[in-house]
């Protein structure tokens, strides 16, 4: 069943001052549609600034889209800060990279995990205490950790606390924005395993955002590849990695260092990642695309189906 659906979401930010000349906009997210199924993971991958975090925030209703809609369990998200929205927020939680910023330094771990329970008015103090102990255990921390403050924990332990806090109100959707990017590899593996175990156990839907295609491939059932605010390809994770159809996906896949070979099949992209303030016309990827033709410079390719489970936005892909 579809837990979350983004329908043609667009988000623009005004550039510069409104007083001078016609207003210019940075289009951070441009017509993005995607689904997260219950108990499954949809991964979003793409380079810095392509709109991954903005998409995640819109999915949670933390930021309104300028156009398009968000459906959660089949219903439109209520207006931000309305009573209904706050009730719904229980169901959808955010986990992000910067754990020190996410956690109040003056609160103990136990208090931090209990806080969302209090905010959502879940249980009484005694049952909350019980739930905090369960959650600590669930994310692999001991009761002893409950007494500590965030700065007394390692990065991996802090990420566990953030996870426990997100899980406290028993959400059905977690949006994870670069949840392991700041962690050491050995600790990253702990958190990735934990996340996958918790998902199995609790039937969570995950929207997993990362710039690291290896991690995204590992956790995701479906992968959405973004470039300059647009979805250029999406489909089943294995299909995307094993047979990428879009030239950008092909380059991303080839830029994944492989063990033991390194970059044996590297497809070099000319030029540099573009800036969203300066979007090329036609296909946004054409200035770096090794295959670009005239049509690519002139018209924007639509995201069209390629087989039953995949969509690609490229003029040269035969749909």
């Amino acid at each position: 069943m579809t837990l979350l659906r983004l329908n043609n979401i667009t988000r623009r930010f005004p550039l510069g001052s409104p007083l001078y000349g016609p207003r210019k906009y940075l289009v951070a997210v441009d017509g993005v549609s995607l689904d997260v199924e219950m108990g499954r993971t949809t991964g979003i991958v793409g380079e810095s600034g392509c709109g991954k975090s903005t998409t995640g925030r819109i999915a949670l209703g933390l930021e309104p889209p300028d156009s398009g809609g968000v459906l959660f369990q089949g219903l439109p998200l209520p207006r931000i800060d309305s009573k209904k929205w706050r009730a719904q927020r229980r169901q959808m939680q955010l986990v992000f990279q910067d754990t020190l910023a996410a956690l109040d330094r003056r609160m103990t771990v136990s208090a931090l995990i209990a806080e969302p329970l209090a905010i959502h008015g879940i249980g009484d103090p005694a049952s909350r205490k019980q739930r905090v102990a369960e959650l600590l255990h669930g994310v692999g921390l001991g009761e002893g950790h409950g007494m500590l403050y965030p700065h007394q924990l390692s990065g991996g332990q802090r990420q566990r606390v953030v996870l426990a806090r997100a899980l406290a109100p028993k959400p059905s959707l977690l949006v994870c924005d670069e949840p392991v990017s700041a962690l050491d590899l050995s600790v990253q593996a702990q958190i990735v395993n934990l996340l996958m175990d918790l998902q199995q156990e609790l039937g969570l839907g995950l929207l997993f955002i990362s710039h690291d295609l290896r991690v995204v491939r590992h956790v995701s059932d479906r992968i959405v590849v973004m470039y300059l605010g647009r979805v250029v390809e999406q489909g089943r994770a294995d299909a995307i990695i094993d047979q990428p159809a879009h030239p950008y996906t092909q380059a991303l896949v080839s830029a994944m260092p492989r063990l033991p070979g390194g970059f044996d099949h590297y497809v070099a992209l000319p030029g540099e990642p573009p800036s969203p303030t300066d979007r090329p016309c036609g296909c946004p990827f054409h200035p770096r695309c090794p295959l670009a033709r005239d049509v690519c410079r002139q018209s924007l390719p639509e995201l069209l189906p390629l087989g039953p489970e995949r969509q690609v936005a490229c003029h040269l892909v035969r749909h």
Binding site: D184, S186, V192, R214, R217
Partner: peptide, 18 residues
């Protein structure tokens, strides 16, 4: 601990502690 870039997806080796 490195998620493999191809082949079957196996559980990662999580090294206990830090």
């Amino acid at each position: 601990a490195i998620p493999p870039s191809h082949g079957p997806r196996m559980r990662l080796t999580a090294i206990a502690g830090a």
